[in-house]
Design a protein around this nucleic acid. Structure first.
Lengths: 207, 207
DNA sequence: AAACAATTTAAACAAACGTTTAATTTAAAC
DNA sequence: GTTTAAATTAAACGTTTGTTTAAATTGTTT
């Protein structure tokens, strides 16, 4: 089911790029074909339809998006250090799958297109469980406060990241970030720091 | 420039709803015409084109989106209380303009469509200035820490809110929120609390 | 080399798209 | 009541959309 040949993968990657840039509806199969240097009919030939191409793309990407968090859970780190590492992993993964997230978020939030987000939800649940266990560990050790809404912590981490990316033009202006490289640097330094600082403050703050 | 008659406003509101639900490209002028019970030609007649309709919509909405933050700045509250009020104002306004934000975010982040987001950026700058003065006041009073990235605080507030809304299906499932009413209640209680708690922790936490 | 299936192509398909036209109805002014 | 402008309509415009066809090419097997 998830075995695609080189040609199919090339189409999937091209589609991913264009869907992320211009949206699903904003991208025509001719755009994809031209960008991938293939004939239009090849999309129907390999995937059946444009909609099935989107489904295939989501399956193709999500299956390889699982976080390598299991080892983190077992590592010999303090709860605070684990939170730091967790945030780094989150950002690293989103950065590596920026396009896919852009697509999924729009298609899910629009709610119109019926896409199989079960795999996506399962992944989120799994990540949430790992976070829960880390926080519980911190709470038992008396380092973390107990009245935090654990479920909303990944939301704050990812929300901050995405909202920054969404308002790139604004931040480019007020932070004098002229190139994409400047932005990437700001993300991996300042933004990551801000998120770490925020979550750690939330977890350890005592009123 | 910003004076629309009743018919135009009806079209604008219908377009706002559909654009927010299905995206700009996902909505046809025929969809809008049918939903607003008008003839297709009326859109060209009143606005010139579909793209100009979008521009008119953004002008129409953004001009009435200014926050009533000026009074907040002058009110006799502690910096912490002002932060609380600020967050409430943020969420209240986003809730009232949910559709517009959905549209703007997608169109801006896609970057393809050239829309006049100057007014939008000006508004954000203005809100940022008010936040800066509140934080400065808190810092001078010794209540707030001084090594926070003020610029990214609205990003965390709004990002958390939007990322929650984007993942509604996921939260519906794990939080047993069955109706839209349940979700709205969760937003105004739990989610708002979480955001307040997070920002206050970030501002007052001392390492 | 012949036969076969898999791949790739150009061309055509009907449907939907945004927009325009020209005719008609409604409203206002005189 | 006639005239003039604004509002509204159905129909058509030329493109672009996703998809299919049938022929041509390539690769593999015998």
């Amino acid at each position: 089911m998830t075995d695609f040949n080189d040609k199919q993968i090339e189409i999937l990657q091209t589609a991913e790029k264009l869907f992320a840039e211009h949206g699903y509806d904003g991208t025509s199969v001719r755009d994809i074909a031209k960008s991938a240097n293939i004939n239009i009919a090849m999309i129907s030939y390999y995937f059946g339809s444009k909609e099935k191409l989107l489904e295939a793309l989501i399956i193709y990407r999500i299956s390889s998006m699982r976080l390598q968090m299991e080892n983190l859970y077992r590592e010999d780190l303090t709860p605070l250090e684990k939170i730091d590492r967790l945030i780094e992993l989150y950002i690293k993964r989103i950065n590596a799958n920026k396009g896919m997230y852009q697509i999924i978020h729009f298609e899910i939030s629009s709610g119109k297109r019926i896409i199989n987000c079960d795999a996506f939800n399962e992944m989120k649940k799994h990540n949430l469980d790992i976070l829960k266990s880390i926080i519980l560990e911190g709470q038992e050790k008396g380092v973390f406060r107990k009245d935090v809404n654990t479920i909303l912590i990944p939301t704050t981490i990812m929300g901050t990241y995405f909202h920054f990316q969404m308002n790139k033009p604004f931040f480019k202006e007020i932070l004098n970030l002229n190139s994409q490289e400047d932005i990437d640097n700001y993300v991996t330094s300042e933004l990551t720091l801000h998120i770490k600082q925020t979550i750690k403050a939330l977890l350890t703050y005592d009123k």
